[in-house]
Computed example of a mutant assay.
Amino acid sequence: MLTAPHRRLNRLTGDWLLVSPHRTARPWQGQTEEVVNERRPEYDPNCYLCPGNERAGGAVTPEYTSTYIFDNDFPALRPETPAGQPSGDGPLVMESERGICRVLCFSPRHDLSLGEMTVGAIRRVVDTWNDQYVRLGSIDWVRHVLIFENRGAMMGASNPHPHGQIWANERLPNEVSRELHQQQVYAANGSCLLCDYLAVELKDDERIVCANEHFVALVPFWANWPFETLVLPRAHQGALPDMDAGERNGLADILRRVTRRYDKLFGVTFPYSMGWHQRPTDGAPHSEWHLHAHFYPPLLRSATIRKFMVGYELLAQPQRDITPESAAQLLQSLPED
C-alpha cells in the first residue's frame, strides 16, 4: 500500500484526487459535531411523512402501508416551466430548465432506515425506483432521472422519516454528463469502463466491502470521501429496468448490508447522500453506460468528526488522508447483524 503522497485518476469523471496517507498523524482530526442518535417512535404525529398526517403545503399523506410517492410540495424544478432559448452570448448565459421532483417514502414506519428494513421491504423500494425511472423517463422532454437519498440532518435531510427523492431533468446534470463522456471515450476501445474496473477490483480484492451473486459494494480506488462506496452490478446493465427478479433481490440485499455496515462503523445512524446513476433517457441506447450507485458519507474518524471539502479541495482538487484501501478494510471487518 502506498504511503507517500500520490494522485489517483477518477476514471468516471476524469478528475484527479490527491492522497496524503502520512497526514493521518497530524494533531487536527476534523470538525467535531454533536452526536444525535435518538430513538424514534414507529409513528410521529408531527411528521408530515407519516401516514395520515398533514404536510406543510396542506396536502394530507394517506394511510399507506408500503412505499408512497408524491410530487414534492416545494420542488426545485417544475414541469410547466416555459421552454426558452439560451439567453446571452457573452460571459452571462442562462436557459430555462424543466423538471419533476418527487418524494418517495420507503416505509410507513418512522423509526426505520434502509439498513433496518427487511430485504423484502427494500425490494419494494427498488421496484418503485424502477417504476419511476420508466414513467418519468418516458416523458418526451425528460433526458435524465436521478434517484437519490439524503440521510441524516448532516446531509441536509429535513425529516428523519425514511425517504428519498427522484428528480427528472430536461437536460443532463453536470456529474452525469461527465460520467457519460468518460464512459463513451472508454467504450471507443470496444469495452465497458466499469465492467473492466470491477474485474480489476475483484482480482485485487483490496477495496471490496461486501458482495453477493449479483452486486458488489466497494470503496472506489479514486474515492473522495473517507468511507465512500460504489455499488455495481456484476452484469453489464445500464438501468434498473434491465434487472430480473433475482437481481433486484440481490440489489435489496446489498443495500441492506452496506447501510448496516455504515451504522456499525461509529455506532450511529450513519449520514450519507446516495444516488443512482443510470443511462440517460434521451432515446439513445447508451450501451456504454453501466448502472451504479454512489454513497457519499461525510463522517471522518468518528461519529463526531466530519470531513469538509474546503480550501485546497474547493480551489484545486479533492484530497484525502485515509487511503481507500484502509477504509475498505475497516468497513469489511464490521458485522452486518
Rank of each mutant, 00 (worst) to 15 (best):
E63F: 07
P82N: 10
R102Q: 05
M154C: 00
T61C: 11
R135A: 14
L315W: 10
E149K: 12
D44Q: 09
L202S: 04
I100H: 11
G164Q: 05
A328H: 03
G156C: 04
T3Q: 09
P298Q: 03
E288T: 07
I254F: 13
R40Q: 04
G156Q: 07
N53R: 15
L104S: 03
F295E: 02
D337R: 14
A252C: 10
L315T: 14
Q29C: 10
L112Y: 11
T118L: 08
T269S: 13
R178H: 07
V119K: 14
G57E: 00
Y48R: 04
F227E: 01
G311V: 08
E206I: 01
D73M: 00
V142W: 14
G238D: 06
W289D: 01
L334V: 07
R7I: 03
D204P: 00
C210S: 07
A168T: 05
Q237E: 03
Q182W: 10
Y296S: 10
Q85F: 13
N224G: 00
T229V: 14
R7Y: 06
P75Y: 03
R11I: 02
P41C: 07
S87K: 07
R124F: 00
L251E: 08
R234W: 08
V231M: 02
D337I: 10
R151T: 02
A235V: 04
N46T: 03
P280Y: 08
E201Q: 10
F308G: 08
L240Y: 03
D89W: 12
S138D: 13
L17S: 01
L180A: 10
N169W: 09
L291N: 05
L49V: 02
D15S: 12
P108Y: 07
I166D: 04
Q29N: 13
H181N: 12
R39N: 05
R98S: 01
G52M: 04
D140T: 14
E42N: 07
V19I: 15
H214C: 04
M1N: 07
D253R: 15
W276N: 05
N10Q: 04
E63Q: 15
N169T: 12
D44F: 12
C210K: 01
V125Y: 06
P173V: 05
K264S: 15
I139D: 05
A303K: 11
V142T: 09
V310L: 09
R257N: 08
I254G: 03
E34V: 12
A83F: 02
W16I: 11
A4N: 11
D71R: 13
V219E: 00
P335K: 13
M94D: 14
D131V: 02
I122R: 05
N169M: 11
P285V: 05
A327Y: 10
H286V: 02
R40N: 00
P335N: 06
T304C: 11
S191H: 15
Q329K: 13
A199V: 09
E170F: 06
P162A: 06
E228V: 03
V35Q: 11
R39D: 10
T323V: 07
D71I: 08
S20H: 09
L291T: 08
L180P: 00
R11Y: 00
M155E: 01
T24H: 02
F266E: 01
A157I: 06
L255T: 10
Y272P: 09
L18I: 01
H292A: 01
Q332H: 15
